[in-house]
């Protein structure tokens, strides 16, 4: 059924190819069995199972292949496709090399190297940039729709349901589409170039993409920060004197500085939240008539 020349055959003729759509669907569950010892191993084995069934007859070699992939796997879930596709391709080759311990060792090495390489890229793209960008998108949609209730928590706003849901859904749509695309591209690319630990790393200009997302995110951050301070001034324009306005602006800046200092000193945001809550409580207990809201 298999031989060492598998990859010289067109993809469609290779045994694992027809299983790729099912592998793709299953890859959405790669983290379903997340465990502290071997991380995504259960989800990984579950994802490639349809391909293994096509590649091996039921029996000893199939079981050995399943066992192989119950070892440690830890990568970024959206980028896992690159590893999965590559491993399906290598398993096809392995099927034509019964008992080749050297190749098996190479496959597991490639798997580990790719998993950590793509985890580093994926963490930067998805967790470090795209996810915060979706939050920014939500804020921008709300700002452009005139809903500032998230900024002035005590003020009365009555936005429509379309606005309330439009903000977060805009980010979900963009993020979800990109994540699904990446999963599929990963599996296809990994499968077609499988065999080496550098497979898929040239699929996209990763460093360019990371840079682009960083710059976009920073531009949005800057615009949102400027917009928020502008709104703070506008919101208090009629009801506050200059001193009151300055106090509110100073409070906002002070909180931002606190966040920065907290991070610089290695403490989490919970420290800042707790401190703000504790100081507020002490302040209001000490001066009962004290009243100020941003």
């Amino acid at each position: 059924m298999n031989n060492v020349c598998e990859k010289s055959r067109p993809s469609a003729a290779r045994p694992g190819y027809s299983a790729l759509p099912e592998v793709f669907v299953r890859s959405f569950f790669i983290q379903a069995g997340w465990n502290s010892e071997r991380f995504q191993n259960l989800g990984f084995a579950f994802s490639i199972m349809p391909a293994l069934r096509k590649i091996y007859e039921p029996g000893e070699r199939f079981n050995a292949a399943v066992l192989r992939h119950l070892g440690i796997v830890n990568t970024q879930p959206y980028m896992a496709g690159f590893v999965i596709g590559n491993i399906v391709s290598m398993e096809e080759e392995m099927a034509g090399r019964p008992g080749d311990a050297e190749f098996e060792k190479k496959m597991l090495g490639v798997k580990a190297a790719m998993a950590s390489g793509f985890a580093a890229i994926g963490d930067r793209i998805f967790w470090g940039r795209l996810k915060p960008l979706t939050t920014q998108l939500c804020i921008v949609v709300w700002l452009m729709s005139g809903f500032y209730g998230w900024l002035f928590t005590g003020a009365a706003f009555r936005p429509s349901m379309a606005v309330l849901f439009g903000g977060p859904l805009a980010g979900v749509a963009v993020y979800g589409a990109f994540a699904v695309y990446m999963r599929w591209v990963g599996i296809k690319k990994g499968y077609s170039c499988g065999g080496g630990s550098n497979c898929g790393f040239d699929a996209v200009n990763w460093s360019g993409l990371i840079r682009l997302l960083s710059v976009t995110g920073f531009a949005f951050s800057l615009l949102i920060a400027i917009g928020a301070f502008g709104l703070l001034v506008a919101h208090n324009w009629s009801g506050e004197d200059t001193g009151g306005q300055a106090l509110k602006a100073a409070l906002a800046l002070g909180v931002m500085a606190l966040q920065r200092v907290t991070r610089k000193s290695g403490r989490s945001v919970f420290f800042a939240v707790g401190l703000i809550l504790a100081v507020s409580t002490a302040l209001f207990m000490a001066a009962e008539k004290f009243q100020i809201y941003l």
């Binding site: 940039r129 928590t153 920073f218 931002m256 966040q259």
Partner: peptide, 25 residues
């Protein structure tokens, strides 16, 4: 007091957002 602290939370969050990207750039 919790209303007051809550009114400061957007600024705490915006700061996190701003410095995250600033550090990257």
């Amino acid at each position: 007091a919790s209303d007051f602290a809550y009114s400061l939370m957007p600024w705490l969050g915006l700061s996190g957002l701003y410095f995250r990207f600033r550090t990257q750039v």
